[in-house]
Design a protein around this nucleic acid. Sequence first.
DNA 1: TTAAAATTGTGATGTTTGTCACGCAATCAC
DNA 2: GTGATTGCGTGACAAACATCACAATTTTAA
Lengths: 187, 187
Amino acid sequence: MENKLREHIEKTVLLTDDEFAFIASHFTAKSYKKREFIFREGDSVKYAYWVVSGLLMLAYNHESAKQHIVSFAMEDWWESDFLAYHTQSKATMALQCLEDTHVLCLALEDYHKLCAGLHKMEHFFLTKANAGHIASQQRILSFLTSNARERYEQLLKRYPALLQRVPKTLLASYLGVSRETLSRLTY
Amino acid sequence: MENKLREHIEKTVLLTDDEFAFIASHFTAKSYKKREFIFREGDSVKYAYWVVSGLLMLAYNHESAKQHIVSFAMEDWWESDFLAYHTQSKATMALQCLEDTHVLCLALEDYHKLCAGLHKMEHFFLTKANAGHIASQQRILSFLTSNARERYEQLLKRYPALLQRVPKTLLASYLGVSRETLSRLTY
DNA sequence: TTAAAATTGTGATGTTTGTCACGCAATCAC
DNA sequence: GTGATTGCGTGACAAACATCACAATTTTAA
């Protein structure tokens, strides 16, 4: 579990054994079952989560009727309600498991300690944050330029594994179309 | 001009005079006229830009027919085609001035030097990148949860000054609706 | 100053997408 | 196993939005 984390971080910055031991000491492991909520709207968000195995969705519930999926998080991804996490406020979105999931948890205080104590980790998180920002902009572009069918094709091209792992109803919630419309697209 | 940059950075991290002198030495000032392109699709993207005064738009031209605005950048904002900038590849979007604009330019090499030479600057950029990521996610949420009218109202509430500074055709391009639909919304 | 370009509104019409309703198969929980 | 829930497709209809066309006004550039 920790070894996977080391591999993940070393795609960006190389670490000594001591450095990694220091890093690993700031994480705690947790496991959740399918359908379980890691946090819900209104909860305080104590951790950022690194997904060791399993699958998560970050979702916003509009007037407690419709569910909108802001992002899926698969193995190797970082996820949280980052606004609530960084500002220590209450979650506006819920983080829920779509499969049995193992995560490594990083408290905000430990995130800051890691950044302050190890320049490499601040660089690592900067790299991740830049990549996240760029990916979000690409998704915005796909809303601006593409219709439902095109967005669906882009999603399948980018994350072909998702189709096997999540029901189409949820893909529709991610794409911003009704499940009926998505259903009529598939041919 | 440099003083404004110092104020901007010191909202996040406090600096000594020496530190700021070191920082300022990595930027170069440039000025552009209204309608002028800072870069176009296909250009190499050498700089990230901090807007001292004026207004920019980052836009994607779909099949050289329709224009889609990924973001506006007003005073105090950082802007670039960050994917092209960070990966040293060609721009897929164009950065154009909507008003006469003064910017401070930061080459990628100097960005890395700043991050490596001054821990505070890496922390500053990390803070900015996190904020940018969160803001992009909010915009994605607005596409998922809101119709054209609601997105327009959210935009005006968040950036009331924009309405006075850019034509509605461009607001429509930012919101992802036709200018005709936006026009019919305004009452 | 004056012609060209940009901006905005609005009518008519077509397309895309959402909503409601129903049925059926697969999966889950006890 | 069995009843309940979930997932998925599809028809009928309504709403949202895009497109095309035209006109009027304002802004821009030589």
